[in-house]
Simulated scan of single mutants.
Amino acid sequence: MTGYEARDRLYTASELLEGFLPDDELGFTKTHDFSVFRRFYMDGFTAPLSIEIRQQQAAHDAAISGALADHLTTARPLVGVMGGHKLTRTESAYLLVVDLARYLTRENFLIATGGGPGAMEAAHLGAMFAYADDFRLNEALNEIQKVPILPHLIGRLFDDAGSILPDRREHLREAHLWLQAALRAKELCPAPYGESLAIPTWKYGQEPTTPFATAYAKYFQNSIREEALVAKSKTGIIYARGGGGTLREIFQDVEENYYEEEASAFTPMIFFDPEGYWQNDAAVDPETGNVSRQGIKLDGVLREIFKLARARRRDTEQCWSKIRFTVDFEEIVGLLESHRGPAQERRALMLQGHAGDLPATP
């Protein structure tokens, strides 16, 4: 199998991690997931070498989109959690995402993320342990924090023949240990697992896909994946601390909300960080480049954007009430619950043609 074959269902963690060798220091690279990434890279990465390759990848992604639509026809209200892949497993922002995702899963929401490390992993970990007791969750956190940081995996990994470059082997050994810690933590979760949905891409296939989700809509084209992640999260989107990728998702969401005809359809945007990351400018030493305080101040910018966008509709305040900078779990649930009806209608419209009778959940 090339990995490009069209499918009629989403992936599972066991399918993506098939071939993993726990005792091999490069066991992560033996998985089906990494093998597909290697093939994707050798076939031109984001610029396929032939029309045949492009067509195979497109057929795969189209089939995944269909499988995702089928999956969502029976899913609970979908809440996106976006955030940076660099967030470490010991940071307070990571641990708070774990707690929030656990709380939201217990409140009958389905968590969806981009399926990578950092804030995304934290969301799936929390969702999986939603029905486990605190002792089991803390055991899992203790296990996963033995390898708190994912190594630097950006940049070329292979030579022209597809072999791993010698100077990158140590990074992949560290990635293996990072994934192995997650798998040990997963083993500590008793049944039933809390469900969650990951929507990753092989564009970032050098990073291990989190094993904590219960379904994976994995794409080759990142643009399709981003559209699926933002567009499907109609109940609301939560933004944990993040960088460039998270900013792209924020402003994709801003664009969709900008053009909404009715304030009732405006999707809630929740900026979630215990240190007010989205409400503070970064503090950077101009001489050394050292960052003493992280932050990207968005509250004023977003207010001005939507003041302009909603001026003619005269519903600026109504829309602004759906943008929150908060870490209050009950406030977040209250906002998401208030949008349940409009989200249900929007999801039914998006999934029209993919299934017959749709359920009464968004």
Rank of each mutant, 00 (worst) to 15 (best):
T288Y: 03
A283Q: 05
E337G: 02
A282V: 02
G289V: 11
G289Q: 13
E255A: 12
G289I: 10
F329M: 05
G300V: 00
Q279H: 03
V333Q: 14
N290S: 09
Q279Y: 05
P268L: 12
D299E: 14
R340Y: 11
R314C: 07
P286A: 01
I323A: 04
K307L: 14
A309S: 11
T326G: 04
S292Q: 10
F266T: 06
F325M: 03
K322M: 11
D273N: 01
R248Y: 13
E261A: 15
W278G: 00
S292V: 05
F266G: 14
H339W: 00
I296F: 04
Q318T: 15
L335H: 05
L308G: 08
C319N: 15
E330L: 13
W320K: 03
Y277Q: 04
D328I: 01
D328P: 03
S321D: 07
D328C: 08
P274Y: 09
E260V: 12
T326P: 04
V301R: 06
K307W: 09
S264C: 10
S338R: 11
G334D: 02
R313Y: 10
I296P: 01
V327R: 08
E255T: 12
D328H: 03
E287R: 09
E337F: 02
N257Y: 02
Q294F: 07
D273K: 00
E262H: 10
I305A: 04
F325Q: 14
I305W: 00
W320G: 01
A263G: 14
V333H: 15
S321R: 10
E256T: 08
E249L: 02
D328V: 06
G341K: 09
G295Q: 00
S264H: 09
E317L: 13
R312T: 04
I296T: 06
N280M: 05
R293V: 02
T267A: 11
K322C: 07
L336N: 06
L335S: 03
E260T: 13
E317K: 09
E275D: 11
I250M: 11
G341L: 15
L335G: 04
G341R: 11
E275F: 14
M269F: 09
A282F: 01
R310S: 13
K322T: 00
D315F: 10
W320V: 09
D315H: 05
Q294T: 07
D253E: 09
A265E: 14
E261F: 06
F306R: 11
R303E: 15
L336H: 08
F329N: 05
A309M: 05
G300P: 00
E249Y: 02
R324S: 13
E262P: 09
L335Y: 04
F306Q: 02
G300T: 00
